[in-house]
Amino acid sequence: MKTNLIISLFITFFLCSCEWKSDVDDPVLNKLGTGHGIVTYTDYEPLKAKPINLHFYIPEGDIKTMPIVFILPGTGRNANDYLAAWMKNFRSKEVIAIALEFPQEYYSTSEYIEGNMFKKNEALPEEQWSFSVIEAIFSYVKAETGNQVNQYSLFGHSAGAQFVHRFVTFKQNTHLNKAVAANSGWYTVPDVQVEYPYGLKNSGYTDNTTLSHLFGSSLIVALGDQDIDPNDNSLRHDEQSDAQGLYRFARGEYYYSEGERISKANNMVFNWKKVIVKGVAHDFEAMMVQTINYLF
């Protein structure tokens, strides 16, 4: 009898051990608080019918003073993987990290990476832009946690980097501190002679205020020097994007150099930084690990 009990306990322990998952993969909270979990955000009235999932990690410590970073994932919208990568590598950082999932059923590719600024070539009011929800989420996080910081930072990779660099381009009067745009597939270059969305022509934002705001922003253009596959099936190829280069690394180099050139031609302050990550291709975790310290 005693032997059978021991065997039973052993089997139970073995099965439980096999089914156990790391808490990195298993969200445990459904409201913002110390720990990690997911909150579905619908408080921004203009986009109330298009919820956004906030995958968050808040470490122990003085929440009131912690920096806030919003993480924008790639085209797969896999915010859970991005948060897991953050928790794997940066648990010791006293930072509120929130990976933003714009669900594909509510946000098309263009509504995500281009911010929903236009619909059928008609300009939409700024409050309807996908970009505009960032400020609302920042206010929500502060209200829910008691956080008192005045700014936030952004990290985006691939499609998320497209969101980030266009957010910096078109959203003014925000609480943004610094932004990392890592391995973007293609860019809206700050050239008023190139048609939107590849440039600023006909975007409605070709004035010096837009350019000086963009060039004066703390934008970190992060590029994996091995992100050089021109045949990546998720990489856009058309005349306009290929004019920027045939693969992501070349396009990022082009975007940065054009920004530097145009800012100098207009005698504008240029606050961008280019970071080349050696030996890394299209790997969001490696890019995060190598560039996140530029934000803090």
Results as ranks from 00 to 15, higher is better:
V221P: 04
N78F: 01
I220H: 05
K178F: 10
H213R: 07
N208M: 13
A222R: 07
E19G: 03
F131C: 02
T42P: 00
G185N: 03
V189C: 12
A79N: 06
N233C: 05
H237E: 08
I262H: 06
K178L: 05
G61L: 06
T34Q: 15
L235M: 10
N208L: 15
E94R: 10
P27M: 06
D81G: 10
F56A: 07
V133Q: 05
A85Y: 03
F170L: 03
F296G: 04
A281P: 01
M287S: 11
R251L: 13
E285P: 02
Q148A: 14
K278A: 15
N30D: 13
A181T: 05
P190Q: 06
F170I: 00
L72W: 02
T188M: 11
V280F: 03
L54V: 11
G76Q: 13
K64N: 09
Y196K: 00
G259Y: 08
S132W: 01
L223K: 01
S8E: 12
T109D: 14
L72N: 13
L235P: 03
P230G: 09
M288A: 07
E135N: 10
V194C: 09
F270V: 09
D225Y: 06
V149E: 13
N173S: 11
T40D: 04
S218Q: 15
K2L: 15
A286D: 11
P103E: 08
D232L: 02
G115P: 01
A286P: 06
M66R: 06
S203N: 04
Y106E: 10
C18K: 14
S153I: 00
V221D: 14
A286I: 02
K64Q: 14
D26H: 07
K178V: 01
T40P: 03
V192C: 08
Q151A: 08
D191Y: 09
L295Y: 07
